[in-house]
Write a protein that binds this DNA or RNA. Structure first.
Length: 270
DNA sequence: GACACTTGCGGCGTTACTTCA
DNA sequence: GTTGAAGTAACGCCGCAAGTG
């Protein structure tokens, strides 16, 4: 393995390594969903009606938010029925979802302040159990068909839209994580190529200096040392490489294509 | 069969909220 | 108590594919 393998990815290193796309690069911190919740939060899986359970989770997550509004409960019942999977479009479901969020927000903060305005967004925090189940499901398949989504939503006492959003965000996080990994690989590859380039430049300089200070016939041994293996036969004294030329002069260098040129053979670095 | 239109869904960028140091 | 960073639920927009007339 190593950088050689890393480079065999069809990558063209025209890509820059400015740290673009790293604005939220915190790989280590990405694995701390456990810390999110205090243990007191529990997921009710009793026989409570769906609408009531949602309300319960909502109030749990809001720590003290009041949610005893009968009107809102009735609305939930309507929404729950309307969003039944069989004959309601997702668009409608999404609209309903927005309404529900709004209703939740209003009802849960009815005792506090209500100046959030119509654009206010109520954010739900998933419980440990909910997250775990979603995560487990995501491991099995990163996308859900409508049936799976509906089942999962029922099991978690969430709206299908919430499950859908969770999976979307989860896929996005997975992709971001993979991008970060790829970025690291590319960085290593770039460092390797840079080092290789530096080495070859140095070697080229040495060869040029040697060529200036020594007559041609004295350059042969040094030159053959830095040739690619296929050229060694030339230095060996008229091998089969270039029979016509070697027959005329023992000091004729190998033809250009036999020299290892780091600039015309960039792939040799990988 | 080709075409236009609708619908459903996923990706992406962004916003808003929560938590924590 | 305040603040900034990080994490993430939710939103809006867009493009694509499948279905329909």
């Amino acid at each position: 393995m190593g950088s050689d393998d890393l480079c065999n990815t069809g990558l063209v290193l025209g890509l820059g390594f400015s740290s673009t796309g790293e604005k939220s690069k915190k790989p280590a911190a990405a694995h701390r969903p456990d810390k999110i919740f205090e243990p007191s939060l529990t997921l009710s899986l009793s026989g409570e009606p769906y609408d009531l359970q949602v309300k319960k989770i909502d109030s749990d997550n809001n720590k003290g938010g009041l949610s005893c509004d009968h009107q809102s409960v009735d609305l939930y019942r309507q929404d729950s029925a309307a969003s039944s999977f069989s004959n309601v479009s997702v668009k409608r479901e999404r609209e309903i979802g927005s309404e529900e969020v709004e209703i939740e927000r209003v009802s849960s903060r009815v005792s506090d302040e209500d100046e959030d305005g119509p654009n206010g967004r109520k954010k739900l925090r998933l419980s440990k159990a909910q997250s775990a189940l979603l995560e487990e499901s995501f491991k099995q398949h990163s996308t859900l068909n409508p049936k799976q989504k509906q089942d999962l939503a029922l099991e978690l006492n969430l709206r299908p839209r919430q499950v859908e959003v969770w999976f979307q965000n989860r896929r996005a996080r997975t992709k971001l994580k993979q991008t970060e990994v790829d970025c690291e690989i590319l960085k290593k590859c770039c460092e390797s190529l840079t080092e290789e380039n530096r080495r070859l430049q140095k070697e080229l300089q040495e060869l040029k200096a040697l060529k200036l200070t020594q007559p041609l016939y004295m350059q042969l041994p040094a030159a053959t040392l830095t040739m690619c293996p296929s050229c060694e036969r030339i230095g060996g004294g008229g091998g089969g490489g270039v029979p016509e030329n070697s027959a005329k002069s023992p000091y004729v260098m190998a033809p250009k294509p036999h020299f290892y040129n780091p600039f015309t053979n960039p792939s040799a670095a990988c």
